[in-house]
Design a protein around this nucleic acid. Structure first.
Lengths: 280, 280
DNA sequence: CAGTAATTTTTAACTTAGTTACAAAAAAGA
DNA sequence: TCTTTTTTGTAACTAAGTTAAAAATTACTG
C-alpha cells in the first residue's frame, strides 16, 4: 500500500518531498481530489515537486498516485499505523497497535512470495525430521513453530541455545529440514549455524529479513516483513505476528499435502487433552 | 459503488454512452490507468463523450471517475475468511489464513474491553514482580510475554511447568502480578493454580476465553476471542495472534505510564545486542 | 413521405493540469 | 572559502480534458 510506502520512506526523502508526503498522510482522503497545484500549495512547495515525489515513491504520475491512494484507502484497509505517542488514551493506542498488526498482515498478503512458500513446503514434506532454531525474541516463536510442526507426524525439535543449534546443524543432512527464525538475519551465531547447515548438507529454510546474510545462505528465504517494523520502539511487534502467520501457512500447506491421514492424528492429539479440562 | 451505478443506468444511456459504460464494466481495472482518449478509442467513440458520460453518471470529471472506480474495486479484496479446503492452491489458502487473522484483529478492535486493559495495566504498574503462566500451546506465548514484560524493569519470570506454577502461585502476594494465559480457560491444573493465587493474595490477570472458570477466578479477565476460532482445525491459530496483540497493548500501556525513564532502559537493552550482529 | 425539431455525436478550439528542462539556491565536501 | 553535488523553484511546454459549435442522426408532425 502507498500509505505504507510513504510512511516508511519518510526519512529518506528530501525536505520538500517530506512536506508533501506528510501532507498526503495527513489527509489522504482529500488528496484524492486535489490537483498537483493544490497539493503543492498545501505542502508549501512548488508544483513540480509533487510530480517528483510521485516518481520517487514509484508512481508513474500524480494521477496514478491518486488512483493508488484511492484503492489503498478503500474498505477496511485504511489502518494507517501511526506511532503511539505519550498523549494517547488507552483506546487510541490500543487501536494503533491493532492497526499496525493488521497493516502488517495486509502487507504480507500483498507481497507474499508464493513460490518460496511452495518450495518450503516441498522441503518440509520430504523431511524425515525438522529442526527449528530461534534465539532471543525469536525463541518463543520457534517454540510455537515446534508446537505446530510436530503434529504433522514429522519428528520436530526446537533449540534456542546456540551451542545446541550448532551441534544439531552439524548433524543435519539431506533428510533434515532446518528452519531458522530471526528478525534481523544478522545475528553472528545464527549466521555461523546456517553455514554449518550448508556444509552438512541440510535443507535450510529461513524466515527473516529480506537481503540479510541468513536469507542469502538459505535454500529458501521467506521475508518476515521486518522492513515494516516501527523502529521508534525497541521490540519487534508486527514482525512477530507476520512470522507466526507464515508458520500457520506452512503448517497448513503441509497438512493439506499430507491429506486425510493427518486428520486422524490431529484429532487424537486434541482428544489427548480432554481429561485435562473441566467440562462446559 | 460506481460499477453498480453504471450497470443500473446502462439502458437509460444513449448509444455512445452505453458503449463506454460497457467498456468500463468490461475491464474496470484497466480503465483506472487510461486517458479519456484511450477509453474513447476502446469504446469506439469520440473523446468528449467520455467526459460527458462521467457527468451523466454523477462524477465531476473523468479523473474523478477513475478515483471512484479505484476505491470501489478495492473493497473487493476484503478478507473473506472461509475455511481452508483441500482443493485450494497455495495462494488461496494463504490468503484465507491471513484473512482469518485480520478478521480476528478486527474483532478484537471492535470488542476490546478498554476498562479491563486499564485495570490490568494498573495492576502491572504497581507490581514488584510479574509471574507468567502458560501451558501447552500457550507456553510459547507466555515465553514471549516474559520477553516483553521484563524490559519494563519489573522482574518477570515465566513457567510452563504446572508444578513450578503452583509453587510460584503459592508464594505470590499483593506485590505480585500473575498473568495466566490459556486458550480454553478450562485446564484443570491451571484452575487449581489460579485458586492458589487467590488464596495467597496475588493479583490475577487472565487472558482467556470469556465466561470460562479461570476468567471468573481472575481479578481482571481479558477475552482472547477464542469464540472466533475455527473449530474444524485442531490447533488454535487466530487466538494466538489475538493474545500476542493483547500483550503488545499491555506492555505498551505499561511503558507509556512509566514515561521517559523506560526509554533509556529499552535503548540499553537494544544496544546490548549490537555486538552479536554483523553490520549492514 | 418530406420537412422540421430535438437529440445525439463529432470535430475543432480552448483551458487547465502535469511534466520537462534549465537555472538558481542550498548543502556537502575539499 | 571555493567547488561540487544535490535539491528546489521558475518558466516553458506537452498532453489531457472540457467546452462550444457544427454535423449527423433520430423522432415527430403536417
Amino acid at each position: 500500500m502507498i500509505l505504507n510506502r510513504l510512511q516508511q520512506s519518510l526519512n529518506q526523502l528530501s525536505k520538500a518531498e517530506r512536506r508533501i508526503a506528510e501532507a498526503i498522510l495527513n489527509s489522504p482522503a482529500d488528496v484524492v481530489h486535489m490537483t498537483t497545484a493544490e497539493l503543492a500549495r498545501a505542502a508549501e512547495v512548488s508544483d513540480p515537486m509533487v510530480s517528483r515525489l510521485c516518481r520517487t515513491i514509484g508512481c508513474r504520475s500524480f494521477p496514478d498516485l491518486k488512483v493508488q491512494l484511492a484503492s489503498g484507502m478503500a474498505s477496511g484497509n485504511s489502518y494507517i499505523s501511526s506511532t503511539v505517542s505519550s498523549g494517547d488514551n488507552t483506546e487510541t493506542f490500543a487501536n494503533k497497535i491493532i492497526g499496525a498488526s493488521m497493516n502488517a498482515l495486509e502487507y504480507l498478503r500483498s507481497g507474499l512470495d508464493v513460490e518460496a512458500i511452495e518450495q518450503a513446503i516441498a522441503i518440509l514434506r520430504k523431511a524425515k525430521r525438522i529442526e527449528i532454531f530461534g534465539m532471543g525474541g525469536c525463541a518463543s516463536i520457534a517454540a510455537d513453530a515446534q508446537n505446530r510442526f510436530f503434529r504433522s507426524g514429522i519428528p520436530t525439535v526446537c533449540y534456542e541455545d546456540t551451542l545446541k543449534q550448532r551441534m544439531a546443524a552439524a548433524s543435519s543432512n539431506s533428510d533434515t529440514a532446518v528452519l531458522i527464525i530471526t528478525f534481523t538475519g544478522r545475528t553472528k551465531d545464527m549466521i555461523e549455524t546456517a553455514e554449518i547447515v550448508n556444509r552438512a548438507g541440510g535443507n535450510l529454510i529461513a524466515i527473516t529479513a529480506i537481503d540479510s546474510p541468513i536469507a542469502k545462505l538459505a535454500d529458501v528465504a521467506i521475508s518476515s516483513a521486518a522492513e515494516l517494523e516501527d523502529t521508534t520502539i525497541y521490540v519487534p511487534m508486527v514482525t512477530r505476528i507476520v512470522i507466526l502467520t507464515i508458520i500457520d501457512i506452512l503448517t497448513t500447506g503441509l497438512a493439506l499435502q499430507m491429506g486425510p491421514e493427518i486428520e486422524t492424528r490431529l484429532q487424537l492429539i486434541k482428544h489427548s487433552l480432554d481429561l485435562t479440562k473441566v467440562a462446559k
